[in-house]
Amino acid sequence: MTVNWAAFATAEPELAGLVEERFGAFTHHVLVTLRRDGSPRTSGLEVRFLHGELWLGMMPDSLKALDLRRDPRFALQSNPGPGADPGPGDVRVSGRAVEVDDPRTKGAYIEEVEPPQPFHLFRTELTEVVRTYVEDDTYLVVQVWKPGEPLRVVKRK
């Protein structure tokens, strides 16, 4: 089961706000795609939250775009920022990336973001959202959300 960003934000608004905040804190993040042989490929990426969707934009014929065209599964890790301070923690989003060719949808994105052109645009369908952080300098807390399931919280000492 997959859902778009708006459905996730409706189901878990507090977590969605924290995830957007973490991705908004820095420009570049890490995208993981699958190579033809199934091994992971990591790439830098900028993301946008617009109109209830999490968007991934990429240069034309970039390896990550070609990977997603072949196998849409992805994982996206927020930039943790400088230094050793864990701050509000790390967030990861996993799912499927669906390429958008519709001129109207792509045009609205271009108007809002003004990306270099040409480019590939992918809309995400989420299968998992994870936030990991340290609480009270004692506990590692992991929040895991999956479509159709309640938010699961695990604390480890």
Results as ranks from 00 to 15, higher is better:
3 V>R: 05
5 W>Q: 05
6 A>H: 10
7 A>E: 15
7 A>C: 00
8 F>T: 03
8 F>K: 02
8 F>A: 04
8 F>H: 02
11 A>S: 13
14 E>A: 15
19 V>A: 05
20 E>D: 08
22 R>Y: 01
22 R>Q: 13
23 F>T: 14
24 G>I: 06
26 F>I: 01
27 T>H: 12
28 H>G: 08
32 V>N: 04
32 V>R: 05
33 T>Y: 03
34 L>I: 07
35 R>F: 00
36 R>T: 09
36 R>W: 12
38 G>P: 05
39 S>Q: 03
40 P>R: 02
40 P>D: 06
42 T>E: 08
42 T>L: 10
43 S>Q: 08
43 S>F: 10
45 L>G: 03
46 E>K: 04
46 E>Q: 08
49 F>W: 00
49 F>R: 00
52 G>T: 12
58 M>Y: 09
59 M>K: 08
59 M>H: 10
61 D>T: 03
62 S>L: 08
62 S>H: 11
63 L>N: 07
67 D>Y: 04
68 L>R: 01
70 R>G: 05
73 R>Y: 04
78 S>E: 11
79 N>A: 12
79 N>W: 00
80 P>G: 07
81 G>R: 00
84 A>R: 14
84 A>D: 13
86 P>N: 08
90 D>C: 01
92 R>Q: 15
92 R>A: 14
92 R>Y: 02
93 V>Q: 02
94 S>N: 12
97 A>H: 12
97 A>Q: 10
99 E>Q: 12
99 E>D: 04
101 D>W: 11
101 D>M: 03
101 D>I: 06
101 D>F: 12
102 D>C: 09
105 T>P: 01
105 T>A: 14
106 K>F: 00
106 K>D: 02
108 A>R: 15
108 A>K: 11
112 E>T: 12
113 V>A: 11
114 E>T: 12
114 E>A: 14
114 E>M: 08
115 P>Q: 03
115 P>D: 10
116 P>S: 10
116 P>E: 13
117 Q>L: 06
117 Q>C: 01
118 P>S: 12
118 P>K: 13
121 L>T: 07
121 L>I: 04
122 F>D: 06
123 R>C: 10
123 R>S: 15
125 E>N: 03
126 L>W: 00
127 T>W: 00
129 V>N: 04
130 V>D: 02
130 V>L: 14
131 R>C: 06
131 R>V: 06
132 T>P: 00
133 Y>V: 12
133 Y>T: 13
134 V>A: 10
136 D>H: 09
137 D>S: 07
137 D>L: 05
138 T>C: 02
139 Y>F: 15
141 V>I: 10
142 V>S: 11
142 V>T: 15
142 V>I: 14
143 Q>F: 01
144 V>K: 14
145 W>Q: 04
146 K>E: 15
147 P>E: 11
150 P>N: 05
151 L>M: 07
151 L>I: 12
153 V>H: 06
155 K>C: 05
156 R>D: 14
